[in-house]
Amino acid sequence: MRRVSIADVAARAGVSGQTVSRVVNGSPRVLDSTRARVEAAMAEIGYRPNRAARALRTGRTQTIGLVVATLAAAENSRMLEAIAESTGARGYALTVVTIGQEGLGRAFERLEDQGVDGVIVLNEASPSLSNVILPRGARVVGVDAAPMPGMTSLETDHLAGARAATEYLLELGHATVWHLGGPAASHTARAREEGWRAALHAAGIVDPAVVRGEWTASSGYAAASELREATAIFCANDQMALGALRGLAEAGRRVPEDVSVIGFDDLDDASHYQPPLTTVRQYFDVLAERAVAALVAEIEDGVPMPERIVVPAILAVRASTAPVAHRPVLG
Results as ranks from 00 to 15, higher is better:
Arg3Ser: 13
Arg3Asp: 09
Ser5Cys: 11
Ile6Met: 10
Ile6Asp: 02
Ala7Gln: 13
Ser16Val: 15
Gly17Thr: 15
Ser33Phe: 05
Thr34Val: 13
Glu39Gly: 13
Ala41Val: 11
Glu44Cys: 12
Tyr47Cys: 10
Tyr47Trp: 14
Asn50Asp: 15
Ala53His: 07
Ala53Ile: 12
Thr61Val: 10
Leu66Asp: 02
Val67Asp: 01
Ala69Lys: 04
Ala69His: 11
Leu80Phe: 09
Gly88Trp: 01
Ala89Trp: 04
Gly91Lys: 03
Thr95Asn: 07
Val97Glu: 11
Ile99Ser: 03
Gly103Cys: 03
Leu104Tyr: 01
Gly105Asn: 01
Gly105Met: 01
Phe108Cys: 04
Val121Leu: 08
Asn123Thr: 15
Asn123Glu: 14
Ser126Trp: 07
Asn131Arg: 13
Leu134Ala: 10
Pro149Thr: 12
Glu155Asn: 15
His158Arg: 10
Gly161Cys: 04
Ala162Trp: 04
Ala162Glu: 02
Tyr168Ile: 05
His174Met: 09
Gly182Ser: 11
Thr188Asn: 15
Arg197Gly: 04
Ala199Asp: 07
Ala203Leu: 09
Val210Met: 11
Arg212Ile: 04
Ser219Cys: 03
Ala222Val: 00
Asn237Gly: 03
Asn237Met: 08
Gly247Asn: 00
Glu250His: 03
Ala251Asp: 05
Ala251Ile: 01
Arg253His: 10
Asp258Asn: 05
Asp268Lys: 09
Pro276Leu: 08
Thr279Cys: 04
Arg281Asn: 08
Gln282Met: 12
Gln282Trp: 10
Ala291Pro: 08
Pro304Met: 05
Ile309Cys: 11
Arg318Thr: 08
Thr321Val: 09
Ala325Pro: 05
Arg327Phe: 01
